[in-house]
């Protein structure tokens, strides 16, 4: 199946675009709940980071 393209390299690129988007969808779906729950409370490190980020955001 060439999908109307003259060159198999283009057909391959076309299919890889669809395939990689499908990979993203499948990966996202399968790992929807993996990677750790967000902590109930940010850690002290994260708290410090948030505080400083807010200061920077205010400047901008």
């Amino acid at each position: 199946m060439t999908l109307g393209f003259a060159d198999p390299w283009i057909t391959l690129a076309f299919l890889l675009c669809l395939g990689s988007a499908a990979l993203c969808v499948i990966y996202g779906y399968l790992n929807w709940n993996s990677g750790g729950d967000a902590p109930e409370k940010p850690s002290p490190e994260d708290e410090a980071w948030i505080h400083e980020e807010e200061e920077l955001e205010d400047e901008l």
Partner: peptide, 9 residues
């Protein structure tokens, strides 16, 4: 990391 995994979709 979970939010990044989800955003991939």
């Amino acid at each position: 990391r979970r939010e990044l995994n989800r955003a991939v979709l």
